[in-house]
């Protein structure tokens, strides 16, 4: 089931370009249609990820200013759907099953990303997380775990937060996710709470990326808008951000 290689996954993802259409509702129909949740309906989801090593993404930038419509609150709409979906599961075992179904959608991260610098600390299982800003300033997320149930948690977070503006990721609180706990993995404040740990870790990285982007803006007002045909240069910017993330040891999370 998890045999897909990194390259096949990335080719799937490559076909997905960030949609300027803010109305992504139908993409997330599984949340609304929990009764008929099936693997096939999941498969149409775009946001379950590809590895970040996709070179196209780094070179195909186009000069682009965020349109107000793109900042439409995606998180506030996706999250309630997910919560409703989870709350409809009355038996704990159904939640486990649902998480395993979500886990099945999440392509494994390549070994090159399953490294200590990407580890989320404080989970009983290993969790790896990569966060980048795409060319529109939106969050790109990849997450993976060696535990299937934890992978399910990761998949949900990716589903809700991938492709959203950084501010939205930063605005999500652990309390917002509390409804998703349903008795799993300790209370909202537990050290083993996967939602909490991944979220906090993600936000920390987003803050670093945003600070990095803003710093660039200050020095060169055009750098984040100018699209270089020079892939190396673009790549360098991401690589630089990446290095910054990695240099940060995420000691607390």
């Amino acid at each position: 089931m998890y045999t897909s290689t990194a390259s096949t996954i990335s080719s799937i993802k490559t076909t997905i370009s960030p949609s300027p259409n803010p109305n992504k509702k139908e993409t997330f129909s599984p949340f609304e249609n929990t009764k008929r949740l099936s693997f096939s309906s999941f498969k149409s989801l775009k946001c379950i990820h590809s590895p970040p090593s996709n070179p196209k993404r780094l070179t195909s930038c186009a000069a682009f200013t965020l349109s107000p419509s793109l900042t439409t609150k995606l998180v506030p709409s996706k999250l309630p759907h997910l919560i409703t979906e989870f709350e409809s599961l009355s038996q704990p075992i159904d939640l486990v099953k649902r998480l395993l179904q979500y886990a099945a959608l999440l392509a494994p991260l390549p070994d090159s990303s399953r490294v200590d610098s990407n580890r989320v600390m404080g989970c009983t299982a290993q969790v790896w997380l990569e966060v980048e800003l795409d060319e529109y300033g939106k969050i790109m997320l990849w997450a993976d775990s060696d535990s299937e149930i934890t992978r399910g948690f990761c998949a949900c977070l990716v589903l809700v937060l991938d492709g959203t503006p950084p501010e939205e990721v930063l605005n999500v609180t652990t309390e917002d996710l509390a409804a998703l706990n349903i008795g799993l993995h300790g209370g909202a404040r537990s050290r083993v709470n996967t939602w909490h740990n991944v979220l906090v870790s993600m936000q920390k990285r987003v803050r670093i990326l945003v600070a990095e982007r803003d710093r660039k803006k200050d020095f060169d007002p055009f750098s984040s808008l100018i699209v270089s045909s020079d892939g190396v240069q673009a790549k360098g910017r991401y690589a630089e951000a990446q290095i910054r993330i990695k240099a940060n040891n995420f000691s607390s999370y």
Binding site: P92, I93, L95, V96, T124, A125, D146, S147, E148, I149, T150, G183, L184, H185
Partner: peptide
């Protein structure tokens, strides 16, 4: 092939 956290979670929940 089963993560201990998954085992512990299932044992607890079910």
């Amino acid at each position: 092939n089963i993560h201990p956290t998954d085992i512990a979670t299932f044992l607890d929940q079910q």
